[in-house]
């Protein structure tokens, strides 16, 4: 290993400048952290700094979703939140990449004109910081987008399954009315005369775009089975009692 030399490795004033910068950052982060904790403990909307605008947007969506359950009107972002997001967008996507690319170009030109080891300066530090943030953002954007797309796809699929289930339940209600109507009608009017015996499904509701329906009839009970068409492994099974009410719902597999 080589001994330390007296020739300075630091530009004049670098050490106290960097220490001042670190002290300011430390003060800012500690204050912001304490403020965030105080706000959270008072159960007020939590305000945090984030480099990514979609995290702030997600927080608002969640907050508004929870507010909707309580019957509150959705809130628009406050001016403070908008300013915070704008600052983060400017830092992340404008200032840091620009500083990094310009610094990189300048260093390349300097290296070609003045070879040798350079001193540490505040500008080198800002260049390093811009580089760290730019590379971090660039590296994290692809996995974030893949995860986000996969999550959205999953939500869409679950919503489609849920829609199909809702449509089937709607059709079952109409079928139950038809079944109970059959039981109430006297035999002279093609009814069951107080029994479900002899009931057959009408042609149209036995198969829709959502499901295929089948019934199993007993005197006082009809079991309806709906087999989903878009999701063949999913089905709904339910019984209609003597009063035309649904009992024993079953939602196996994807409808569970």
């Amino acid at each position: 290993m080589y001994p330390k030399t007296d020739s300075s490795e630091f530009a004049p004033g670098f050490v106290w400048q960097v220490f001042l910068l670190a002290a300011l950052i430390l003060g800012f982060t500690i204050t912001a952290q304490k403020a965030a904790l105080r706000v959270t403990s008072n159960v007020v909307h939590e305000r945090t700094w984030t480099l990514f605008p979609w995290i702030a947007a997600g927080a608002y969506t969640l907050h508004n979703g929870l507010a909707a359950f309580s019957g509150d009107a959705p809130k628009l972002p406050t001016v403070g939140d908008q300013a915070r997001v704008l600052t983060a967008v400017l830092i992340t996507f404008v200032i840091c990449p620009t500083g990094f690319l310009l610094g990189w170009r300048r260093r390349r030109l300097n290296r070609e004109s003045v070879p040798g080891k350079s001193q540490l300066r505040i500008s080198s530090l800002l260049y390093g910081f811009s580089g760290v943030l730019t590379l971090f953002v660039a590296a994290s954007i692809i996995p974030i987008n893949i995860a986000s797309e996969s999550l959205q796809q999953g939500i869409r699929e679950r919503q489609a399954v849920q829609d199909n289930r809702d449509q089937i339940i709607n059709d079952l209600h109409l079928l139950a009315l038809d079944i109970y109507q059959y039981r109430l009608l006297p035999r002279e009017f093609d009814g069951g005369g107080g029994s479900y015996r002899g009931y057959t499904l009408p042609e149209k509701p036995s198969s829709t775009k959502d499901a295929t329906y089948s019934v199993s009839v007993k005197d006082d009970e009809v079991t309806i089975c709906a087999q989903s068409i878009p999701y063949p492994t999913a089905s709904v099974e339910v019984k209609v009692d003597t009063m035309g009410r649904f009992v024993w719902w079953k939602f196996p597999d994807e409808f569970q």
Binding site: T29, A32, Q33, A36, E46, T48, W49, F136
Partner: peptide, 8 residues
Amino acid sequence: FLAFGLGT
């Protein structure tokens, strides 16, 4: 702190 917020 900037990327994640230390707490969140």
